[in-house]
Amino acid sequence: MSELLGELKSDLGLNDKEYRHTYANERLNGLIATQIKVLREQRVWRQEDLAANAEMHQPMISRYENVNYSSWSIKTLKQLALAFDVILEVKFRSFGDMVRGVDEFSRESLQVPKFSDDPFFKIKHSVKRPKIRLGIRARNVGQVGAFKVVTPLTDRPIQLPLQWDLPVGSKLGPQLVNNSPQHQQENASIRDLSMKAAAASSGAGREYVRQQASR
C-alpha cells in the first residue's frame, strides 16, 4: 500500500459522510477533466478539433479541461464519448474502490483507444465454426429465364432447355452451395438432378427434372 493510499484510507475511514462525499466529488471532477485532456492528446487533437467533433465551441472544451469544473451532465459526457468514439460508463462504486484507485491515476490508465484502434476488435477470435464453403462458380451456372441453376460439383457448363417451367419454391432456383457434411446429401441430389438436366434434351430427361423439381 502506498503512503498516499494509507493516508487516504485513514482520512476517509474517520466516517464523516459530508467530508468523504465532498472529497469523492472533487476527485470525480478532477478525473473527468483529466481524462478529457488525456483522450484529446491521445488522438493528437487540439481543443478546436475536439470541439468540432463534439459539435461544441472551443471555449467549452477549455472549461471542461479544468479540474475545478463541476457542472457535468451525462448529456455532455455522452457527446464527448461520441466524439472520442468510446463508451461512457457511469457506475456507483464503494469508497474502498475509490481509495484503491488512487494509485492507478496515471496518463496510461486514462487512455482509451477509439473503436477503430480497439484491440478487441482487431484480434481474430478462435470461435469454432463448421467449415462451410459458400460460393457459385460462374462456369457451372446455367440460366433458365430469370433462374440460375448451380452445379457446384461438376466442371462442365450445363445446357438447359429454355422452356422450363419451374414451380415456385423449386430447388432449381438461385442458391448458394453449402458443402458442410450435413448438406452433402442435398448437394448430391442437386448434382444428380443437374447432371440429368444437362442431358435433358429428351422428353424423358425433361420429365425427370419436372418430377424432382415438384418434390
Binding site: E18, T22, A33
Partner: peptide, 26 residues
Amino acid sequence: QKDELAKLNQKLDMLRREPELPPQLL
C-alpha cells in the same frame, strides 16, 4: 470548513500523485 478541507486534501493528493497531469490544477 469541512468541505473546504476535503477539497484541499483532494487537490493536494492529486498534486502528490501526478502533478503534471490534471489540467489547470496549478
